[in-house]
Nucleic acid binder design. Structure first.
Lengths: 143, 143
DNA sequence: ATAAGTGCAAAGAGTTTGCATGTTC
DNA sequence: GAACATGCAAACTCTTTGCACTTAT
Protein backbone atom coordinates (compact mmCIF):
# COMPACT_ATOMS: atom_id res chain seq x y z
CA UNK A 1 0.00 0.00 0.00
CA UNK A 2 0.90 3.59 -0.57
CA UNK A 3 1.43 4.33 3.11
CA UNK A 4 4.02 1.63 3.46
CA UNK A 5 5.99 3.12 0.61
CA UNK A 6 5.80 6.57 2.14
CA UNK A 7 7.14 5.28 5.41
CA UNK A 8 9.88 3.37 3.64
CA UNK A 9 10.93 6.44 1.73
CA UNK A 10 10.94 8.55 4.83
CA UNK A 11 13.00 5.99 6.69
CA UNK A 12 15.46 5.61 3.84
CA UNK A 13 15.91 9.36 3.50
CA UNK A 14 16.65 9.69 7.15
CA UNK A 15 19.00 6.79 7.55
CA UNK A 16 16.47 4.80 9.53
CA UNK A 17 15.73 1.14 9.17
CA UNK A 18 12.67 -0.77 8.17
CA UNK A 19 11.86 -3.15 10.96
CA UNK A 20 9.12 -5.63 11.62
CA UNK A 21 7.89 -3.58 14.54
CA UNK A 22 7.52 -0.42 12.48
CA UNK A 23 5.69 -2.27 9.78
CA UNK A 24 3.32 -3.89 12.23
CA UNK A 25 2.68 -0.67 14.11
CA UNK A 26 1.90 1.12 10.88
CA UNK A 27 -0.47 -1.67 9.86
CA UNK A 28 -2.25 -1.60 13.19
CA UNK A 29 -2.48 2.18 13.02
CA UNK A 30 -3.96 2.10 9.51
CA UNK A 31 -6.38 -0.64 10.52
CA UNK A 32 -7.94 1.55 13.15
CA UNK A 33 -10.15 4.37 12.04
CA UNK A 34 -10.51 5.78 15.52
CA UNK A 35 -8.22 8.30 17.07
CA UNK A 36 -5.87 6.10 19.03
CA UNK A 37 -3.44 6.78 21.81
CA UNK A 38 -0.10 5.02 22.07
CA UNK A 39 -1.40 2.86 24.90
CA UNK A 40 -4.45 1.77 22.94
CA UNK A 41 -2.41 0.85 19.91
CA UNK A 42 -0.01 -1.03 22.14
CA UNK A 43 -2.84 -3.06 23.66
CA UNK A 44 -4.31 -3.79 20.24
CA UNK A 45 -0.99 -5.11 19.02
CA UNK A 46 -0.65 -7.24 22.10
CA UNK A 47 -4.11 -8.77 21.74
CA UNK A 48 -4.11 -9.34 18.01
CA UNK A 49 -0.82 -11.06 17.74
CA UNK A 50 0.66 -11.39 21.15
CA UNK A 51 3.59 -9.65 19.59
CA UNK A 52 6.21 -8.55 22.02
CA UNK A 53 6.27 -4.97 20.84
CA UNK A 54 7.26 -2.61 23.62
CA UNK A 55 5.23 0.42 24.58
CA UNK A 56 8.25 2.64 24.08
CA UNK A 57 8.56 1.45 20.50
CA UNK A 58 4.93 2.34 19.86
CA UNK A 59 5.55 5.82 21.18
CA UNK A 60 8.67 6.20 19.09
CA UNK A 61 7.06 4.87 15.95
CA UNK A 62 4.01 7.11 16.26
CA UNK A 63 6.34 10.11 16.36
CA UNK A 64 7.96 8.74 13.24
CA UNK A 65 4.62 8.40 11.51
CA UNK A 66 3.92 12.04 12.31
CA UNK A 67 7.30 13.09 10.99
CA UNK A 68 6.68 11.21 7.78
CA UNK A 69 3.31 12.84 7.34
CA UNK A 70 1.25 9.70 7.80
CA UNK A 71 -0.19 10.63 11.16
CA UNK A 72 -1.09 13.73 13.08
CA UNK A 73 -1.13 14.41 16.79
CA UNK A 74 -4.39 15.34 18.40
CA UNK A 75 -4.59 16.87 21.86
CA UNK A 76 -7.97 16.89 23.44
CA UNK A 77 -8.87 17.87 26.94
CA UNK A 78 -7.96 14.68 28.75
CA UNK A 79 -4.22 15.14 28.52
CA UNK A 80 -3.65 12.13 26.29
CA UNK A 81 -2.01 12.39 22.90
CA UNK A 82 -4.06 10.71 20.22
CA UNK A 83 -3.16 10.09 16.61
CA UNK A 84 -5.23 10.21 13.49
CA UNK A 85 -4.54 9.35 9.87
CA UNK A 86 -3.10 12.27 8.06
CA UNK A 87 -1.94 11.15 4.64
CA UNK A 88 -4.56 11.57 1.94
CA UNK A 89 -6.91 12.96 4.53
CA UNK A 90 -7.58 16.54 3.74
CA UNK A 91 -7.87 18.95 6.62
CA UNK A 92 -10.85 18.63 8.92
CA UNK A 93 -12.05 19.61 12.33
CA UNK A 94 -13.92 17.63 14.96
CA UNK A 95 -17.24 17.39 16.68
CA UNK A 96 -16.52 15.63 19.94
CA UNK A 97 -19.41 13.92 21.68
CA UNK A 98 -19.12 14.37 25.43
CA UNK A 99 -21.43 11.44 26.04
CA UNK A 100 -20.12 8.60 23.89
CA UNK A 101 -16.70 10.01 23.09
CA UNK A 102 -17.14 9.72 19.33
CA UNK A 103 -15.20 12.09 17.08
CA UNK A 104 -17.04 13.22 14.01
CA UNK A 105 -14.82 14.67 11.34
CA UNK A 106 -16.16 17.75 9.61
CA UNK A 107 -14.90 20.50 7.42
CA UNK A 108 -16.42 23.79 6.40
CA UNK A 109 -14.76 25.98 3.78
CA UNK A 110 -16.82 29.00 4.80
CA UNK A 111 -15.47 28.84 8.31
CA UNK A 112 -11.95 28.44 7.01
CA UNK A 113 -12.38 31.52 4.88
CA UNK A 114 -13.62 33.53 7.83
CA UNK A 115 -10.72 32.33 9.92
CA UNK A 116 -8.37 33.66 7.29
CA UNK A 117 -10.15 37.02 7.32
CA UNK A 118 -10.08 37.13 11.09
CA UNK A 119 -6.36 36.50 11.02
CA UNK A 120 -5.76 39.21 8.44
CA UNK A 121 -7.64 41.73 10.53
CA UNK A 122 -5.13 40.95 13.28
CA UNK A 123 -2.15 40.93 10.94
CA UNK A 124 -1.69 37.29 11.84
CA UNK A 125 -0.39 34.65 9.49
CA UNK A 126 -2.05 31.29 10.11
CA UNK A 127 0.12 28.20 9.81
CA UNK A 128 -2.45 25.77 11.04
CA UNK A 129 -5.44 25.71 13.26
CA UNK A 130 -7.66 23.57 15.27
CA UNK A 131 -11.33 23.73 15.99
CA UNK A 132 -13.29 21.38 18.14
CA UNK A 133 -16.97 21.60 18.92
CA UNK A 134 -17.89 19.77 22.11
CA UNK A 135 -21.42 18.62 22.72
CA UNK A 136 -23.87 15.77 22.23
CA UNK A 137 -24.10 13.80 19.00
CA UNK A 138 -27.40 12.97 17.31
CA UNK A 139 -27.40 9.37 18.42
CA UNK A 140 -26.85 10.24 22.06
CA UNK A 141 -29.59 12.87 21.97
CA UNK A 142 -32.15 10.24 21.03
CA UNK A 143 -31.55 7.99 23.97
CA UNK B 1 -13.87 43.50 44.10
CA UNK B 2 -16.60 41.57 42.41
CA UNK B 3 -14.50 38.46 41.92
CA UNK B 4 -13.80 38.11 45.59
CA UNK B 5 -17.51 38.15 46.33
CA UNK B 6 -18.19 35.53 43.69
CA UNK B 7 -15.60 33.25 45.18
CA UNK B 8 -16.96 33.84 48.68
CA UNK B 9 -20.48 33.02 47.57
CA UNK B 10 -19.34 29.91 45.80
CA UNK B 11 -17.39 28.78 48.84
CA UNK B 12 -20.26 29.48 51.19
CA UNK B 13 -22.75 27.62 49.04
CA UNK B 14 -20.51 24.60 48.94
CA UNK B 15 -19.58 24.50 52.59
CA UNK B 16 -16.03 25.56 51.86
CA UNK B 17 -13.99 28.03 53.83
CA UNK B 18 -12.44 31.33 52.97
CA UNK B 19 -8.77 31.11 53.70
CA UNK B 20 -5.86 33.43 53.33
CA UNK B 21 -4.31 31.17 50.73
CA UNK B 22 -7.41 31.16 48.57
CA UNK B 23 -7.66 34.92 48.75
CA UNK B 24 -4.02 35.39 47.84
CA UNK B 25 -4.15 32.91 45.02
CA UNK B 26 -7.22 34.61 43.57
CA UNK B 27 -5.49 37.99 43.84
CA UNK B 28 -2.38 36.72 42.12
CA UNK B 29 -4.47 35.10 39.43
CA UNK B 30 -6.44 38.28 38.78
CA UNK B 31 -3.24 40.32 38.74
CA UNK B 32 -1.88 38.34 35.85
CA UNK B 33 -3.36 38.92 32.44
CA UNK B 34 -1.44 36.11 30.85
CA UNK B 35 -2.56 32.55 30.64
CA UNK B 36 -0.84 31.02 33.64
CA UNK B 37 -0.15 27.48 34.67
CA UNK B 38 -0.30 26.32 38.26
CA UNK B 39 3.47 26.24 38.46
CA UNK B 40 3.83 29.78 37.18
CA UNK B 41 1.30 31.13 39.62
CA UNK B 42 3.04 29.24 42.40
CA UNK B 43 6.37 30.80 41.52
CA UNK B 44 4.83 34.25 41.32
CA UNK B 45 3.35 33.87 44.77
CA UNK B 46 6.64 32.70 46.14
CA UNK B 47 8.59 35.61 44.66
CA UNK B 48 6.15 38.37 45.46
CA UNK B 49 5.59 37.56 49.04
CA UNK B 50 7.68 34.62 49.96
CA UNK B 51 4.43 33.16 51.14
CA UNK B 52 4.59 29.54 52.05
CA UNK B 53 1.73 28.53 49.79
CA UNK B 54 2.10 24.96 48.61
CA UNK B 55 1.97 23.95 44.99
CA UNK B 56 -0.81 21.51 45.75
CA UNK B 57 -2.92 24.31 47.17
CA UNK B 58 -2.44 26.31 44.01
CA UNK B 59 -3.61 23.36 41.95
CA UNK B 60 -6.60 22.83 44.22
CA UNK B 61 -7.55 26.48 44.27
CA UNK B 62 -7.34 26.87 40.51
CA UNK B 63 -9.83 24.02 40.18
CA UNK B 64 -12.04 25.87 42.62
CA UNK B 65 -11.80 29.05 40.58
CA UNK B 66 -12.92 27.09 37.54
CA UNK B 67 -15.80 25.58 39.43
CA UNK B 68 -16.91 29.00 40.61
CA UNK B 69 -16.78 30.36 37.08
CA UNK B 70 -13.91 32.76 37.66
CA UNK B 71 -11.37 30.85 35.62
CA UNK B 72 -11.29 28.57 32.65
CA UNK B 73 -8.93 25.77 31.75
CA UNK B 74 -6.98 26.04 28.55
CA UNK B 75 -5.16 23.13 26.97
CA UNK B 76 -2.68 23.94 24.31
CA UNK B 77 -0.28 21.62 22.61
CA UNK B 78 2.45 21.50 25.23
CA UNK B 79 0.56 19.31 27.66
CA UNK B 80 0.33 21.93 30.40
CA UNK B 81 -2.97 23.18 31.78
CA UNK B 82 -3.21 26.94 31.72
CA UNK B 83 -5.88 29.15 33.20
CA UNK B 84 -7.44 32.32 31.94
CA UNK B 85 -9.90 34.79 33.42
CA UNK B 86 -13.41 33.74 32.71
CA UNK B 87 -15.78 35.92 34.71
CA UNK B 88 -16.99 38.97 32.82
CA UNK B 89 -14.91 37.87 29.89
CA UNK B 90 -17.27 36.95 27.13
CA UNK B 91 -16.37 33.97 25.00
CA UNK B 92 -13.39 34.29 22.75
CA UNK B 93 -10.94 32.19 20.80
CA UNK B 94 -7.20 32.49 20.42
CA UNK B 95 -4.55 33.32 17.91
CA UNK B 96 -1.41 31.65 19.22
CA UNK B 97 1.91 32.99 18.00
CA UNK B 98 4.33 30.15 17.48
CA UNK B 99 7.26 32.52 17.62
CA UNK B 100 6.76 34.64 20.73
CA UNK B 101 4.12 32.54 22.45
CA UNK B 102 1.66 35.39 22.76
CA UNK B 103 -2.07 34.62 22.88
CA UNK B 104 -4.28 37.08 21.12
CA UNK B 105 -7.91 36.87 22.16
CA UNK B 106 -10.39 37.20 19.34
CA UNK B 107 -14.02 36.55 18.71
CA UNK B 108 -16.03 36.39 15.53
CA UNK B 109 -19.81 36.09 15.63
CA UNK B 110 -19.96 35.03 11.99
CA UNK B 111 -17.76 32.05 12.68
CA UNK B 112 -19.82 31.16 15.72
CA UNK B 113 -22.97 31.25 13.62
CA UNK B 114 -21.43 28.97 11.01
CA UNK B 115 -20.30 26.59 13.72
CA UNK B 116 -23.87 26.36 14.90
CA UNK B 117 -25.05 25.62 11.36
CA UNK B 118 -22.35 23.04 10.89
CA UNK B 119 -23.45 21.34 14.08
CA UNK B 120 -27.08 21.34 13.05
CA UNK B 121 -26.23 19.74 9.74
CA UNK B 122 -24.70 16.92 11.77
CA UNK B 123 -27.54 16.82 14.31
CA UNK B 124 -25.03 17.81 16.93
CA UNK B 125 -25.79 20.00 19.93
CA UNK B 126 -22.83 22.19 20.82
CA UNK B 127 -22.13 22.75 24.49
CA UNK B 128 -18.91 24.60 24.04
CA UNK B 129 -16.11 24.79 21.58
CA UNK B 130 -12.58 25.78 21.10
CA UNK B 131 -10.79 27.27 18.18
CA UNK B 132 -7.14 28.15 18.02
CA UNK B 133 -5.32 29.56 15.04
CA UNK B 134 -1.59 28.92 15.19
CA UNK B 135 0.82 31.06 13.27
CA UNK B 136 2.95 34.19 13.41
CA UNK B 137 1.73 37.44 14.91
CA UNK B 138 2.17 40.82 13.23
CA UNK B 139 4.99 41.92 15.47
CA UNK B 140 7.00 38.76 14.88
CA UNK B 141 6.49 39.01 11.11
CA UNK B 142 8.24 42.39 11.05
CA UNK B 143 11.44 41.26 12.66
C1' DA C 1 -15.73 21.37 68.58
C1' DT C 2 -15.82 20.04 64.13
C1' DA C 3 -15.42 19.95 59.48
C1' DA C 4 -12.54 21.60 56.06
C1' DG C 5 -7.87 23.32 54.30
C1' DT C 6 -2.93 23.21 54.23
C1' DG C 7 1.85 21.71 53.23
C1' DC C 8 4.56 18.20 52.41
C1' DA C 9 5.94 14.10 50.40
C1' DA C 10 4.53 10.20 48.06
C1' DA C 11 1.83 8.30 44.41
C1' DG C 12 -0.17 8.47 39.66
C1' DA C 13 -0.62 9.00 34.78
C1' DG C 14 1.47 9.68 30.50
C1' DT C 15 5.61 10.04 28.06
C1' DT C 16 10.64 9.96 27.30
C1' DT C 17 15.27 8.18 27.81
C1' DG C 18 19.57 5.23 28.98
C1' DC C 19 21.42 1.08 28.19
C1' DA C 20 22.48 -3.74 27.08
C1' DT C 21 20.98 -6.63 23.54
C1' DG C 22 19.26 -7.74 19.01
C1' DT C 23 18.56 -6.46 13.88
C1' DT C 24 19.13 -4.36 9.56
C1' DC C 25 21.88 -2.91 5.96
C1' DG D 1 30.41 -5.25 11.52
C1' DA D 2 28.78 -0.61 12.16
C1' DA D 3 24.91 1.84 12.97
C1' DC D 4 20.50 1.81 14.20
C1' DA D 5 16.20 -0.29 16.85
C1' DT D 6 14.30 -2.68 20.48
C1' DG D 7 12.57 -3.89 25.15
C1' DC D 8 12.87 -3.07 29.60
C1' DA D 9 13.19 -0.30 33.50
C1' DA D 10 14.24 3.92 35.29
C1' DA D 11 13.60 8.85 34.87
C1' DC D 12 10.82 12.71 33.94
C1' DT D 13 6.94 16.08 33.94
C1' DC D 14 2.69 17.48 35.37
C1' DT D 15 -0.98 16.66 38.45
C1' DT D 16 -3.44 14.40 42.26
C1' DT D 17 -3.81 12.28 46.79
C1' DG D 18 -2.94 10.63 51.76
C1' DC D 19 -1.99 12.23 56.00
C1' DA D 20 -0.69 14.72 60.22
C1' DC D 21 -1.45 19.25 61.48
C1' DT D 22 -3.67 23.84 61.34
C1' DT D 23 -7.45 26.97 60.70
C1' DA D 24 -12.19 28.85 59.85
C1' DT D 25 -16.70 28.60 61.29
Amino acid sequence: VKETVILQNYLAEHGCKITGQRRRILEAFLATEEHVSAEELYRKLKENEGSGIGLATVYRTLKLLCASGLARELQLTDGVIRYEHHFDHEHHDHLVCLNCGRYIEVSDPQIEALQEQLAQRNRFRILHHRMELYGICGQCQET
